[in-house]
Simulated assay, not measured.
Amino acid sequence: MAAVMDVPFLSLHDVNARHADELKAAAARVIDSGWYILGDELAAFEKEFAAYCGVRHAVGTGNGLDALSLVLRAWKEMGELTDGDEVIVPANTFIASFLAVSENGLHPVPVEPDPVTFTLDPARVEAAIGPRTRVIMPVHLYGQLADMASLAEIAGRHGLLMLEDAAQAHGARLAGTRAGAFGHAAGFSFFPTKNLGALGDGGAVVTDDDQLATYVAALRNYGSEVKYDHPMRGINSRLDEIHAAMLRVKLRYLDADTARRRDIAMAYRLGIANAGIILPAATSEEAHAWHLFVVRCAWRDDLQRHLGALGVQTQVHYPVPPHRQAAYPELAGLALPLTEQLHDEVLSLPMSPVLTDAQVAHVIAACRAYAEAA
């Protein structure tokens, strides 16, 4: 029996403590400025994050859901979409991907994933395209880029828009292109647990489309570009100055944190191999930002209890797929067996840039002890 060691799933205290002095200085700078909404810190972060992603524009929003929703809303204002149009989404995603679609009067069309990568399966996407399909929304699930080359080819051939849900994929890249720069637009989340996390809610839209960026910037601010002039019915969803200032600090460390996540993921994959647990596959090392390290086990609940008894905290991302949620009764009759199997089997192991080598080794030993006890 392996020894017991406390390994938190994610310690946000430890993540942020590394930069406490810089974060406090950033917060103090905003407090002292007397300007707290749509100011210099946000403008600077938007410029820096756009440059990081390799696009012309970043528009800060109140959260990641609003980032996705505002893109779809802007496309409707621009005449690209209309009520009842369809958006192809992965069936195995967090419900926010679906909510962004349905709250805009559009219909989510769930598609089963690739069984190896868990991301959108291009062949199934092609088969799901119908006369009302207007958008493909790939989700870079757990931090791994979807097969963007194949999806972009399909979108181009059918004249479809591409909206990346990059909420978990900050820093993932392929052949020099980062998450957020593959589609017509992308939505990011800066929820505190993300690879680039604020100390509260936050999000951003990134795009190379000048017109789209202008529309999103107005829609997030009550539909206004000029104070008290409202040509569109917008919402209030702005990334606060204080969060923007802190994100500017943390952006400087994102690549180093991603490198550490990749080292941990490699250690897990080498150490847990042959332990009776299905390990995640990476299409390439740089294409996965390892927001989560998600294994599969037919006896998931039993594995989770075993690891918990040895001090290893785990989580399930996500226990119930969106089409089985009460919020979407119209989708309840869909047959999506692979998605349902994944949601029954997935388990997320501890993953963060502040895990120590000793903690990583303990997680590996605890997983191997499960196989030995089976």
Rank of each mutant, 00 (worst) to 15 (best):
A2D: 03
L10E: 09
S11E: 05
S11G: 07
H13D: 15
V15Y: 15
V15C: 07
A17L: 01
A17T: 03
A20I: 13
A20G: 10
A26V: 10
R29S: 08
D32G: 15
W35K: 14
D40V: 15
L42Q: 08
A43N: 11
F49H: 07
F49Y: 14
C53N: 11
G54M: 09
H57P: 02
A58S: 11
A58E: 06
A58L: 13
V59K: 12
T61D: 11
G62R: 05
D66C: 15
A67N: 04
L72Q: 08
R73S: 13
E80S: 06
L81G: 11
G84A: 03
I88K: 11
A91D: 00
T93W: 05
S97C: 12
A100E: 09
E103V: 14
G105E: 02
L106Y: 14
L106K: 09
H107G: 03
P108W: 01
V111Y: 08
V111C: 10
D114K: 02
D114T: 07
F118A: 11
R124S: 00
V125A: 08
V135T: 13
V139Y: 14
H140C: 13
L151R: 04
E153R: 15
I154P: 00
A155W: 02
A167D: 15
H170M: 11
R173V: 03
T177G: 04
A185D: 06
F188H: 07
F190T: 04
F190G: 04
P192E: 08
K194V: 04
G197E: 06
G200S: 15
A204H: 02
V206D: 08
D208I: 08
D209W: 14
D210I: 09
D210R: 13
Q211P: 04
V216K: 00
A217I: 06
A217C: 05
A218W: 00
L219K: 13
N221A: 10
N221C: 06
Y222Q: 13
G223Y: 07
S224M: 03
E225Q: 12
E225T: 12
K227L: 09
Y228C: 10
D229H: 15
M232D: 06
G234I: 14
I235A: 13
N236W: 13
R238W: 12
D240R: 14
D240E: 15
H243R: 02
A245Q: 06
R252C: 03
L254V: 00
L254K: 07
T258I: 13
G271C: 01
I277L: 00
L279K: 01
A281S: 14
S284C: 05
E286S: 06
E286W: 00
A289E: 11
W290S: 04
F293D: 02
V294R: 05
C297T: 12
Q304I: 03
T314E: 04
V316K: 05
P319T: 11
V320T: 12
Q325L: 12
Y328E: 03
Y328L: 13
A335K: 15
L336T: 02
P350W: 01
P353C: 02
Q359A: 07
V360W: 04
A361R: 00
H362V: 03
H362C: 05
Y370I: 03
